[in-house]
């Protein structure tokens, strides 16, 4: 086998590894919702935020806690503080896409509401992160969204 063949094979192997890693990013995670939530909370400043009960989750997002496998929601009592963290572990039949849509449209509406009155709050809202990954739905509005996102990915 000449040197070309070796290089070609190495390329194909690296490519396959690359694809496997990429696809692996999307696989279902076995992490516990509580652990994921704890890691995210540990990574950001949650002064003034409280873990909320199931009713608040339903009131804000319109879904029952029982629709999912694990729901952890943290927000402030005061509506003027727009910071929130939501970690939801979706089961097989959970309305994950609907929840993600609702989360995004709610954040967009809130942004529109705060845009005219509070530039600082609206800047936070503009940078919200909302994603569906590894069977989880994750939503965060906070000062360091990048850290929150990293903590979420790491915990999965």
């Amino acid at each position: 086998m000449n040197s070309y063949r070796i290089k070609e094979i190495i390329c194909v192997v690296v490519l396959l590894v690359f694809i496997i890693v990429l696809v692996g990013q999307n696989r279902q995670s076995n992490a516990d919702a509580k652990d994921v939530f704890k890691s995210v909370v540990a990574a950001v400043d949650t002064d003034g935020l409280k873990v909320c009960k199931a009713e608040k989750f339903k009131e804000q997002f319109g879904f029952e806690k029982s629709d999912f496998e694990g729901v952890y929601y943290m927000a402030s009592d005061s509506i003027m503080d727009v910071r929130e963290i939501l970690v939801v572990r979706c089961g097989d039949n959970a309305p994950a896409d609907a929840l993600l849509d609702k989360v995004q449209s709610r954040a967009d509406d809130k942004y529109g509401l705060f845009k005219q009155y509070d530039p600082t709050a609206s800047a936070l809202l503009k940078k919200y992160v909302a994603e569906k990954k590894g069977g989880f739905v994750f939503f965060a509005v906070c000062d360091d969204v990048a850290a929150a996102k990293r903590a979420f990915h790491k915990a999965l």
Binding site: K115, Q116, P119, T120, S122, A123, A146, K149, R150
Partner: peptide, 25 residues
């Protein structure tokens, strides 16, 4: 830091970190 006329906060220079580059932020 912010724009009076647009009434919003302006983007500051982003930090160059590996993870920020990797996810495109």
């Amino acid at each position: 830091a912010s724009s009076e006329s647009e009434n919003r906060v302006l983007q500051q220079r982003p930090k160059f970190t590996l993870s920020a580059v990797a996810d495109g932020s």
